[in-house]
């Protein structure tokens, strides 16, 4: 039993990203110090989450155009994995904030609170799914809800935080980079984004195949 070759590429790629992320020499920035390396791990969580939610949105719209159980499964899976990465982003952001801003959580930081709100909107998607016994009804209503949920994300994560005073880098426009970010960090950052997205695609693939087999058994 062999896996698809691209999965081995992802495994080796991510291993390389982790090693490079720890070993690349970065300039010493006050307060941030070595925690600046979190750029390679914390920020790609949010990129990956956004890609997963976007995929979920596409599948939900496709479902509404031509309903099929497969599209509903795919929309659900992409959203599940997206939420997983979003929660990782919240947790890693919180621990990073403790040692740079001095607090695990602050209600003065709009990006922190609005991203938590975004995660709750997506948690509601899964709560909503449990409320229906009829699979078609569940698929249709959750697809409509997912379109709503996905449209809130750009506002909650990208638009509103940029209008408000914030400690989080990105108030100036770019959420990941600011003028204190060393340019050489991009050489690890972009491969990390690609690697984490590929890892998410892998997880989505496993989940979808599992759900397909389960669906076949149920019938």
């Amino acid at each position: 039993m062999k896996l698809k070759p691209w999965k081995y590429v992802v495994a080796v790629w991510m291993t390389g990203v982790i090693i490079a992320g720890f070993l690349i020499s970065i300039p010493n920035i006050p307060i941030l110090k070595q925690s600046a390396r979190n750029l390679f791990f914390h920020v790609p969580m949010w990129f990956t989450m956004a890609v997963c939610f976007a995929a979920g949105l596409v599948y939900s719209i496709k479902y509404l155009n031509g309903p099929s159980p497969e599209l509903d499964r795919k929309a659900e899976t992409a959203t599940q994995v997206g939420l997983l990465f979003g929660i990782c982003g919240l947790l890693t952001g919180s621990i990073w904030a403790r040692f740079t801003w001095g607090t695990w959580w602050t209600f003065a930081e709009p990006r922190m609170n609005l991203s938590a709100l975004g995660m709750m909107i997506y948690v509601a998607y899964f709560v909503l799914r449990t409320a229906f016994d009829d699979p078609e009804k569940r698929a249709k209503i959750s697809a409509v809800y997912n379109v709503f949920a996905a449209t809130t994300i750009p506002f909650l994560l990208y638009i509103i935080p940029r209008q408000l005073p914030s400690l989080h880098p990105g108030a100036e426009g770019n959420p990941a980079f600011s003028d204190i970010t060393a340019p050489e960090m991009r050489y690890v950052f972009y491969p990390a984004v690609v690697g984490f997205i590929a890892l998410a695609v892998w997880l989505i693939d496993i989940m979808n195949r599992y759900k397909k087999v389960r669906h076949q058994i149920e019938q």
Partner: peptide
């Protein structure tokens, strides 16, 4: 990372086997 990776690969392979049986 390697432990998690090992786990993901194992689940993927088991699933592949199950798909073949189906």
């Amino acid at each position: 990372w390697f432990v998690l990776l090992f786990f993901i690969i194992r689940v993927d392979k088991k699933l592949g086997k199950l798909e073949n049986e189906m």
